[in-house]
Design a protein around this nucleic acid. Structure first.
Lengths: 167, 167
DNA sequence: CTATAACTTGAAGTCGACTCCAAGTCAAGG
DNA sequence: CCTTGACTTGGAGTCGACTTCAAGTTATAG
């Protein structure tokens, strides 16, 4: 039952890491609901509003376009997903995308780790250490089988120059 | 010792899910090295080139700006990371970013799951099920402690309307 | 009473990443 | 010989996401 403290746009910006301008911009394009105003017209934000902005920041970090965030924000704001079957579907489908994005990121991490390891061992161990690492086929555009895929972004193999033991 | 098959730009586009225009664009801005040409000037791509494009596609999916990809592509192309200490550092730091991005994504997944669950149970169980889920502080801009953070993007709590049993 | 700071608005400008276009080349088919 | 298709080039146009700007309001401090 406490007063529910409120924040200025500046505080909100500091709190969330999103600039004031950007917050106003999000409001302008209605990604955020119109913020409450004080008598003098200044915006005020409560915890809920800050949480929404944080959610945006979080999704933004993942490269999600603003338009795609709308459904999440609708759910965040006040809609009960269970009452809108299509919203539930949307959430599920977005969930899938995100999980696949995590996989992409994990691949990049693996790629980096491989490169770092490779350097550590003075690359000579073998020349194909993590064959099936990248199962490829992460693009939906063309359902191409893409073959066995000996992949690993850049086949470490044929690398003239530093005596690969056996050329 | 086999001939190493080569691909046209069209095939490469199909193979990687990146359009021909975009591939040319990447070459123009030197994100990709100038592709080999046939006598008639047409580009040809080998497995290695395709792998680089796939790596770009993968990073792109994660929202990474093109400029940030350059170091990865340098490593992919032919540089041995261990020979460029600063490159190693860059890789490590990028790795950190990516791991933190994965965390962000995981949070969004958790958020979705929470929302879906919430709907399933007809939200009434409690009103704060996953307090510490989002440790917040994922932004580096301002090293703000951000307090206890009872978070969860949108405090499920105060939700007038549907008889929450106990208002 | 004035000036500084913290906001407001709408509009214009910037930047990254494409995307499209016009004009041209080359190889093979009818 | 002319057309069609797959490419080439340089350059212009688009779109999303800000970012900056100019002008105005209100609150407090000196």
């Amino acid at each position: 039952m406490k007063e529910e403290q409120s924040f200025t746009i500046k505080q909100t910006a500091e709190e969330t890491g999103i600039t004031e301008d950007t917050i106003r911009y999000y409001e302008k394009i209605a990604l955020l609901p119109r913020a409450e105003r004080k008598d003098n017209g200044h915006r005020i934000y409560r915890q809920e509003g800050i949480n929404m902005i944080r959610l945006i920041a979080c999704m933004k970090k993942t490269g999600m376009p603003l338009e795609e965030m709308r459904p999440f924000l609708a759910v965040s704001a006040d809609t009960d997903p269970a009452e809108y079957p299509e919203l539930v579907e949307l959430l599920r489908s977005h969930r899938k995308n995100i999980v696949s994005q995590i996989a992409s990121l994990q691949q990049v991490v693996d790629f980096i780790d491989m490169k770092l390891e490779e350097g550590r061992y003075r690359r000579d161990c073998s020349d194909e250490g993590l064959d099936g690492l990248l199962e490829k086929r992460m693009g939906e555009p063309k359902p191409k089988p893409v073959s066995p895929v000996e992949m690993s972004y850049f086949s470490v193999s044929a690398k003239a120059g530093k005596s690969p033991a056996s050329v």
